[in-house]
Amino acid sequence: MKKIGIIALLFASMSLVSCDLFEMDNYESPSETIHGAVVDAETGDSIRTDQGSEGIRVRLTQLNYSENASHNPDFYCMMNGSFQNTKVFEGIYNVRVDGPFIPLVRESKDGVPLANETKDVKIKGKTEVIFKVRPFLRVEFVGYPTVSNGQITAKVKVTRGISRDEFKSYIEPMGNYDESYPNVTDIQLFVSYSSSVGYRARDDRWSNSIEYSGDSFEPLLGTPVTIRSTKGQVIPSGRHVFVRAAARINYDTPMGSGTRRWNYSEPMEVMIP
């Protein structure tokens, strides 16, 4: 009889555990949507970016469970500066974006808050959030790229979205300011068969860059700069490729992350005759 009792208890325990597991497995999966865009506060244009960890990062932190809540997994904007996440639990969230623009969150080196331009929103159904930011640079093609003997030649114009003095006024109070931060360090010409062309979707055979040391790019601001696809690497005749130009400054966002993010032009499709 003792054995029968023990066996009955074991079965009862297993039954309870099974029920608990069944209940855990039947939680509803997240289905709310947050979507929006990151735009230039001055022009209203989208802040074009890369698709991946070098692009504009979106971070959600749910606030209605704990004041010390950890953030959700980060996700990234699409190349046109828009973003969407369709798998979010309903709740109140802090929404933050980090990219090639003046940081929304700024603190002194002692941790004293200087500015917080993030947004607290209630996500329920489909919720839109728009961020208006100050981009470091604006990048555009001048005219249409040309092709000769399988090599692309493009003219790229880079201007500042914020002056050196304005940049300094925002960043210097955060501490450890370096006068080299606003220097333009490189211009990129990314070439790819993919319409998502960028650092993450580039063909190394044809993509090319021009590097600049110190403040040597300063006289070239606002002036068309000629950049070509890689010399000696012929793009096959009859193909369609996509190109985008990009430029960046000597400043990482978020500060201390080591990631210097590019500001991008719109993509262009180029036919190789």
Rank of each mutant, 00 (worst) to 15 (best):
I4C: 12
T61K: 14
V39G: 08
N208I: 01
I235G: 15
Y177A: 06
T127E: 01
G214E: 09
R59A: 05
E218R: 13
V88A: 13
D74K: 12
Q188N: 08
K168R: 14
E266P: 10
T127N: 02
T259L: 09
E23K: 07
G214V: 00
S53F: 12
D252K: 11
N250V: 06
M271I: 10
Q188V: 00
R205D: 15
R59Q: 15
A154R: 09
A245M: 04
S265H: 07
A41R: 11
T61Q: 14
T159C: 09
E23P: 00
C19I: 04
N176K: 05
G55N: 07
P113S: 11
Q84P: 10
L104F: 04
K122R: 15
K132L: 07
R202C: 07
G52L: 00
L16K: 09
V184W: 00
S265A: 12
V88D: 07
Y93H: 09
K124W: 08
E67V: 00
S195A: 13
I56H: 11
D45M: 08
F22S: 15
A246R: 00
W262R: 05
Q51C: 00
D215L: 00
T61H: 08
N26G: 00
N68S: 14
E67H: 02
S108M: 13
D204Y: 03
G175L: 04
R160I: 05
L9D: 02
D74I: 04
K2C: 13
I249A: 10
Y251V: 04
P267E: 15
V184H: 02
G125Q: 10
G81P: 06
V139E: 01
A247K: 04
T146L: 00
F190R: 05
T153P: 11
N116K: 00
Y251S: 05
R164H: 14
F136S: 02
P173I: 05
P145N: 11
V270K: 10
S148G: 04
V105R: 14
L221P: 10
G232Q: 06
L104Q: 15
T185Q: 14
T159S: 14
